[in-house]
Structure formats: C-alpha cells, structure tokens
Design a protein around this nucleic acid. Sequence first.
DNA 1: GCCGAACCGTAACGTACGGTACGCCCCTGG
DNA 2: CCAGGGGCGTACCGTACGTTACGGTTCGGC
Lengths: 221, 221
Amino acid sequence: MGKIVLQAGADIDRSETPTERQQAVLDAALRLLVEEGDNLTMTAVARRASCSKETLYKWFGDRDGLLNATVQWQASKVRVTPVDRKGLDLASLTASLQRFASDWLKVISSDTSIALNRVAVGHAGSGKDDLGAIVLQNGRFALASRLKPVLEAGRQAGLLDFEDAETAFRTFFGLVGRDVQIRLLLGDRVELTEATIGGDARRATQQFLALFGANNRLKSL
Amino acid sequence: MGKIVLQAGADIDRSETPTERQQAVLDAALRLLVEEGDNLTMTAVARRASCSKETLYKWFGDRDGLLNATVQWQASKVRVTPVDRKGLDLASLTASLQRFASDWLKVISSDTSIALNRVAVGHAGSGKDDLGAIVLQNGRFALASRLKPVLEAGRQAGLLDFEDAETAFRTFFGLVGRDVQIRLLLGDRVELTEATIGGDARRATQQFLALFGANNRLKSL
DNA sequence: GCCGAACCGTAACGTACGGTACGCCCCTGG
DNA sequence: CCAGGGGCGTACCGTACGTTACGGTTCGGC
C-alpha cells in the first residue's frame, strides 16, 4: 500500500512496516541479493517475486528504494531478545559473553550478512543511500547496545574492571571478530564450523576476562 | 607494450611490470578509483590519463583487466622493508609491535586502502576476478608474514609465550583493528588522528603483551 | 624526406538495464 | 451481475557505458 520511503539524508528507521505481500517480495529480493550480489536486476526481482516491475516501482519508488527496504527488512527480522542480567556471578557472565561471541560469529559468517555487508560497502562510496549506516546500526552498534549493559552489570557486580564501556566493548569486538569479517567479505574461504565458532567464542571470552577481569592486575590500559 | 594479464583463476602476481607510461595511466586510474569508487568509467580513466580508450583496451584488455592491474599496481607500491630482529629485549619488541599496529591503522584508514577494499569487496560476490584475493594477499596476509617472524623471535627470546604464531597474530590483528576497518568501509566517519592512532597502537600492544607475555600466567587460552 | 608503429581524440555501435505504459485477469464491493 | 481497482506480464523507451573503428599526429629508423 504505502510507499516504503526513507527520508533522504535524515533519520533512519523512518518506515512503515510492509504488508504481507511486500514482505514476500522483499524476501525474494533478499534471496536474490544473496545469490547475485549488487548486480541483481529489477526484472530478476520481479520475476523471482512473481510480481510486475510496475508494482516494484510503485511500492519502492526506485532501485535504491528497493535495496533500502530490503536491507531494513532483513534488519527488522533480527530484533533480538534482551539479555537477562539476574545472574551476576562469574559463571553466568562468562556464559553470556561466550554466547554473544558465538552468536556474533554466526551472524557475520552467514550468507545473508555477507551479502548485505557487501552491497552496503559497495554503496558506501557514492553516498546515494545510507545502506552502510543501516547495516552498521543493526550490526556493530546493535551488538554494542546489547552487550554494554552486560558489561556494566559485570562491573557493578565487581567482576569486571574497566574505565569506559565503549572501549571495553571494542576490545571484545576485536577479540571475537579478529580478521574473520574482512576475510569473508573479500571472498576468502574461512572454515567456520560450529565447533570452531564455539572454540573461538571461548577463547575470546577468556582473553577478554584476562584483560578486564577484576581479579587481574592489568589495569595499565 | 605487453598486455598485463592475469591468468584467470590461477596464480597471482603473474604479471609483467608496467612501463613508465603505463604506470602513469595506472596511477590516474587509481586516483579516479579513490574519487569515484567502482563506478569509474573507461572514458573517465582515458580522459584523466590523457590517453585513448583504444590504448587502454590494448594494454589491459578489459575493464576488469584495468581494475586488476590497478589494484596490483598499488599493491606493488607498498612492498615493505623487512624488520630487523637484532634487538631482542622487551623494549624493542614492544616498539616493534607498536610500530606495526600504528602502521597498520594508518594503512587501513587511508583513502586508497578504503577505496581498494571497497571495490574488492564489491567484486568478491560475483567471482569474475580475484581482486579480493589480491587485496587480502597484500593486506592481511602480508602483515601476517611480516609480523610472524617478530613474534617467533620474541618467543625465542623468552619474551612471548604462545602455541601457534597464526592465532597469536590473529589476536593481535583483532586487538589493533577492532571495529575500525568495517566501520570505515561502511562509511562511518571514524576520528583517526595521529594521536588516537598512537594511543590505540600502544593500548593494543599492551593488551597483546598482557595476553601473550611470557611473564604472565595467562596460558589457559 | 619517407614509412610504419604507437598513440591520441572522438565518433559510432551494441547491449544491458532502469524506468514507464498498456492490456488483461482476478477479486471485491455494491 | 457489473464496475473498478490492484496487480501480473510484457512490450517499449532512453540512456549510460563497454567496446570497437577510424582519422590525425608524433617519433624513431632508413
């Protein structure tokens, strides 16, 4: 029904939720985006979604509009459950961190994440749309805003010791992701089985605790 | 004179070094790539380089060939000086690591690196060329092969303690880069002054030493 | 001074694709 | 039962750009 537009230049998430049918179309576009990358054609999307090009243009206005809506649609699908912070002992904190790490690794190694990041990076150069901002918002920054409360809680409970939650988070981010994302984006075949992800999550968590655990005396930033 | 071709699919760095004039053309293409991103046109390159399109096609065969040659040209320009490993005390090791970190941050935040990574990521989806492999080879893997000897030397000197140089390197990589590269690629304006780079390099180095320094008892990976 | 090769500038061709127009079907409401 | 609108399929238009062709110019060799 309503055009899903994005106020050019202004605020993000300025969008109405798409109808059932529109969601189907967006899903088709998403699947095609994963397969074809940025060189998907409007005709291909129309064919895949079994709809007419005219409909696409009526709904999304533009090729960029379609891409925008697709990315936002995927973003809206991964709204996550807020973490419970009732357990405040070291074991549960460790488990939480490990879970975050594991989830994050699974996300960034997924086909759709790779595809979305690829197109967003590609579009980031010529600032026609803000795909980059959207992806960033629903990736790195969403992770931060979910993880920071946990870190703060850990500090409150005397389990963690850090000055700034932001820098602590960024260190955790680096320890978890390392070179994985850029390698995947650049097409490197990285072996990421369930097992290695689990191991990496455990290792990253231990390293993070070694650096920011309250019982350790490594505070000299 | 000779076409600068790349054996499709096979080995990298299978290329003759370009002539003086060709280098000038490639530099022009590179500058244009930084400005325009992947939507540079052959006409634009020809105009910028003050050469004819016919020459471009004769030399590089193809648009992809031109891009390939441009990326390789930039890669060939950053052949680095191997590090001296004569000083084996903690101070010099720290200085080396810090220098690596600082250099790396400067590289990934440079305009040309961002532009090159952007096009390489964009092309990584549809496997027409191996720009991704080239960039990876001259970025992340080049860094690894330069840094690993230093790490090994540090271990020999009893300053570092790690099982596998590869994983140690990847941790260092993560501690240095954190979220910087992906944010830059996605168009986020990251403040990276000389000062912050220095601070980040120092911090990453200290964290790395905290994790892998031989005098610390954090070996339970 | 002449020849050919390399190269510049530009015009021309072909195509792929974004965007639009139109005819037809189906479905709903009156 | 009929009118109308939303939506499918498709043909079509315009354009941008990759690629090619061609005439003019410079330059080294004889």
